[in-house]
Simulated scan of single mutants.
Amino acid sequence: MKTYGIRTLRTCFAALVLALSTSAYAWPDKPLKIVVPAPAGGLIDVIARVYGDFLAQELGQSVVIDNRAGAGGMIGVQAMLSAPADGYTLLVTNSNVLAETPHVMKPPYDPLKDVKAVAVLARARSILLAAPDLPAKDMAGLVAYLKTATDKGSFGSPGAGTLPHVGGEVLNRRLGADMQHVPFSGTPTALVALMSGQISLYFSAVVASTPLVSTGKVIALGVSGTSRVSAMPQVPTFSEQGFPEFAEFSNYLGLALSPKAPPEVAAKLYAATLRIAQSPQFNAKIAGIGFEPLVPTSSEQFGEIVAAEFNRNGELIRRLNLKP
């Protein structure tokens, strides 16, 4: 009787292991969902939709985009972590959500341990935009304006601890200014406020800014990186203008999922994403809208980028004494 019970237990255990391995092997056999921790039309949303289209073609399953904006991206990350860890709920995010915001907002998760970075996809350079009525055309003009203006103005951000927030505070200290920080729910709403003159400045991504600059709805004062942007060659880099501290202001974008997801699924997802990142069509598509395409060298690369930025940004945020 005892032997029979042990055999039965072993048989059940073997069946369970087989079922789990078969389930992972069959992945994906139903639609996938990509959680975007930002509003529609924003930086992360744009690349998530492009990637989602390519992923659907690659896997033969439909991919749904689920925008969960708010709290500097924490709502979206938490939504991904709260879903079943079966590899069907993914997260497309930028490094800012995982490496900057947590230093200020204190999320209910560890961004380095509770989120599994799968693959980096692209990099987005930053550009400092000014309201159309601001009497400045470059960084020198901004310095001159802030020296004489009675109203020092304000700068916007998608939330405390985000790159635009940090950028504005660094600018305050560099220029000895006292511009007010105004947080918004996301980049789209902040840009609307900028165009209408409700705020003075905003550190945006080049991706979201090119059409606004070309039509004169905002003024571009400087761009990060070591070279000018081909779509806006008239805009000098920060380094050219004597502001090297903004040269590396950029965001990495990539794919993540729950660390509890089956390893086989994570490996398949990375392999599919690698094929997409190596696709000339995908690279041409995202480069055409202002991203710098990146091909992941390993499944750990995005995690290493996030960890490095987490440490660097933490030191900077503590030095600036940023608060929610």
Rank of each mutant, 00 (worst) to 15 (best):
M1Q: 14
A14G: 13
A15G: 12
V17S: 10
V17M: 15
S21H: 07
T22E: 03
A26K: 05
P31W: 04
K33H: 07
V35S: 00
P39E: 08
R49K: 14
Y51P: 00
Y51N: 05
G52K: 02
F54Q: 01
L59R: 13
Q61A: 04
S62T: 14
V64Q: 14
G70Y: 05
I75P: 06
G76V: 12
A79K: 14
A83E: 09
P84I: 08
P84G: 09
A85G: 04
G87W: 00
G87N: 04
Y88D: 02
L91C: 06
N94Q: 15
V97N: 01
A99W: 01
A99L: 06
P102Y: 00
H103L: 07
M105N: 11
P107A: 13
P108H: 07
D114A: 11
K116F: 01
L121P: 03
A122T: 02
A122D: 00
I127C: 05
P132D: 11
A140C: 06
G141Y: 09
T148Y: 03
D151Q: 15
K152E: 11
G156F: 11
G159N: 06
G159V: 11
L163E: 10
P164M: 11
G168I: 03
Q180Y: 05
F184L: 10
F184R: 05
T187K: 04
L191E: 11
S196V: 04
Q198Y: 12
L201M: 12
S204C: 09
A208L: 15
T210A: 15
V213S: 02
G216H: 04
K217M: 08
S227Q: 14
A231V: 06
P233A: 04
P236D: 08
F238I: 00
S239Y: 03
P244W: 08
F249N: 02
S250L: 06
N251Y: 05
N251D: 15
Y252E: 02
A256M: 02
L257Y: 00
K260M: 05
V265F: 00
I276F: 06
A277I: 13
Q278S: 11
Q278N: 12
P280L: 06
N283A: 14
N283F: 05
K285D: 12
I286D: 03
I289V: 15
G290H: 06
S298L: 11
S298I: 12
E300Y: 11
E300R: 14
Q301W: 00
F302G: 00
A307C: 13
A307W: 03
R312G: 01
R312Y: 04
N313Y: 12
L316H: 09
R318Y: 05
R318G: 15
R319H: 15
R319S: 15
N321M: 13
